[in-house]
């Protein structure tokens, strides 16, 4: 089994008030020097079987049609190696 990660972010030109609220809280917490924060979504898909080109193409379609609304959001698809998955589970 392998894990495929889909990251979804608002398009850069779209205002992200949640990210701004986080950024404004940082100085109060003693974090200086962070000029901007944008908040997105991360989807972790556990894939049965091999993550070959066909599987990735299907996940890409899923991300484009459902996980992200490409009118307002951008997305990236990446495969996490099985070692990383195993390590993360510990």
């Amino acid at each position: 089994m392998a894990r495929v990660v889909v990251d979804v972010m608002l398009k850069p030109e779209i205002l992200d008030p949640q990210g701004q609220a986080v950024q404004r809280a940082l100085p109060r917490l003693g974090f200086e020097g962070i000029s901007d924060v944008r908040q997105g979504k991360r989807f972790e898909l556990e894939v049965d079987g091999p993550v070959d080109d066909a599987a990735l193409a299907r996940i890409h379609d899923l991300a484009e049609s459902f996980l992200a609304n490409t009118v307002i959001e951008d997305f990236t698809v990446k495969v996490e190696s099985e070692d990383v998955v195993a390590g993360a589970a510990k």
Binding site: L10, I14, P17, A21, N69, I72
Partner: peptide
């Protein structure tokens, strides 16, 4: 309707949260 692309654009959280 915007998610279905029957109308253009999209809807997001109110700017004041």
């Amino acid at each position: 309707l915007t998610e279905a692309h029957l109308l253009p654009g999209g809807m997001l959280g109110n700017d004041h949260l």
